[in-house]
Design a protein around this nucleic acid. Structure first.
Lengths: 169, 169
DNA sequence: TCGCAGTTGAGACTGAGTCTCAATCGCTTC
DNA sequence: GAAGCGATTGAGACTCAGTCTCAACTGCGA
């Protein structure tokens, strides 16, 4: 296990203790899984990965643990243009936005201070007090564009759909 | 019926005819309802309104008609920070973004050419070909801020939830 | 050993949205 | 006005991400 993963487990344990909660084997396994491989992921995808690794964890526990991780601020719940949530690691406390490739599902992050500042100005002009914002730019990434239209190329989006379907059986 | 509503009905009829489809009584009623009152709305809210007015239209027809309206470009499907879709009128063909009040559910639209230009620059830098973008700024609107925290004030969000629940019974 | 709060998994439930299918509509042709 | 036919409809089953419930289990302190 990479050292940064252990650090995240410890961070979560500290938060749990502070709340009078416990770092159970299930919770630790989920945190390890989340922080060792996936940067952006879906709840069902995570559930499937755990099943693959023969770690028995129920759907309810996955969602419960994700909720706790969101509360600690270690994970963020985001909308990436699909009709369900995605989750992502929070590194430091830097806010960022997303370029989402609608062909392969890959996500490029970016942060632009100028964009943020302009948004604050707009809110001020409209007498609106912002608490959070959410910007996704949908389109086609460099790799997919170069590949051109290969309609049946196995992509991440499809793989997740298939995995989720098998899981429910 | 306000004259601009009839204009929208006619616009929809023209599109349908062009596609070899018909402007049925149900479709016309939905377009009239959408364009006479709601600016931003949810599918279930629309279904409830029709039921209230004793216009018998099924859930399937509502979704089918919304899909057609999206295809014509008269209506746009948007995410406003909740876990389901919202719909909005498209006036002309101006793209815009949203300030969403998390207290009362009201939506303020804005358009900022500078913001759009900056986004294009970011995409270019990341070799990403954008097709669409989606920016919501969540926060508190002027009215709600002035009212302060009135936790049990009947707001639009709650009203829609109650209506949707009654509808399913 | 007991009590008890926290935790778990299985599976029922929810709610927005989609799909299916038989019945109906409305137009054209005879 | 009857027949033919494609478009349309409503009812309700279905899907799927996410939530909730509940009985069983765990681990710790008294």
């Amino acid at each position: 296990m990479p050292p940064h993963v252990q650090k995240e487990v410890d961070r979560f344990a500290a938060f749990l203790q502070q709340q009078g909660l416990k770092l159970t084997a299930e919770r630790a396994a989920l945190v390890r899984e989340i922080f060792s491989t996936h940067y952006h992921f879906e709840a069902d995808e995570l559930l499937f990965k755990m099943k693959e690794k023969a770690v028995k964890i129920s759907r309810a526990t996955v969602y419960r643990t994700l909720e706790l991780l969101v509360k600690t601020g270690m994970v963020r719940r985001v909308h990436l243009g699909e009709d369900h949530y995605h989750y992502e690691h929070v590194t430091g406390n830097s806010h960022h936005d997303h370029l989402v490739c609608t062909t392969c599902g890959s996500v490029i992050e970016f942060h632009d201070a100028w964009l943020e500042e302009r948004q604050r100005e707009i809110c001020k002009k409209k007498h609106f007090t912002p608490t959070f914002h959410n910007l996704q730019i949908l389109g086609v990434c460099e790799t997919c564009k170069r590949k051109g239209e290969q309609p049946d190329a196995p992509d991440r989006v499809k793989m997740i759909q298939v995995a989720a379907m098998q899981l429910r059986k």
